[in-house]
């Protein structure tokens, strides 16, 4: 329990990941499904950002004229991973939403069950 309290960022990230994962898996509404995807990805970024931060240290930007000491800065690699991850997640979200739009134009619904029903009917015809 005390571990959870000290690592509350990580605990929150894992809970959010679970919420996002289940939403992506189970939500019937397509928009909600992809909101789930975003919650899931953002949870991972929170986790990485929390892991990279070291208390009382600054961002690793070296100003001219100051001596660069490694003890003064946080770990920059997780920040880099988060940025890359955000780019990936934005492109996946954009693609998914474009797909949802195409589906809505074709079937006139955002509900997955209804779409599947209509698609089955179409296949039979």
């Amino acid at each position: 329990m005390s571990n959870l309290m000290t690592n509350y960022y990580e605990a929150a990230a894992v809970i959010l990941f679970g919420i996002g994962f289940m939403n992506l898996l189970l939500a019937k509404n397509l928009i909600k499904k992809f909101i789930g995807l975003n919650i899931m990805d953002t949870a991972v970024y929170l986790f990485l950002a929390a892991k990279g931060y070291i208390t009382a240290r600054a961002a690793p930007i070296i100003a001219q004229g100051t001596a660069a000491r490694v003890e003064d800065y946080i770990n920059p690699v997780p920040s880099g991973l988060v940025l890359t991850g955000i780019v990936v997640s934005v492109s996946v979200t954009a693609f998914s939403l474009a797909l949802v739009q195409r589906l809505y134009k074709h079937y006139g619904s955002l509900d997955l069950d209804e779409i599947m029903k209509k698609a089955k009917k179409e296949e039979k015809v």
């Binding site: 992506l24 996946v92 693609f95 998914s96 797909l99 949802v100 209509k118 698609a119």
Partner: peptide, 15 residues
Amino acid sequence: GESIVATLHYLVICL
């Protein structure tokens, strides 16, 4: 239409 449904199916599982 059915290819878009199949794509959605594939996309969600892959994600």
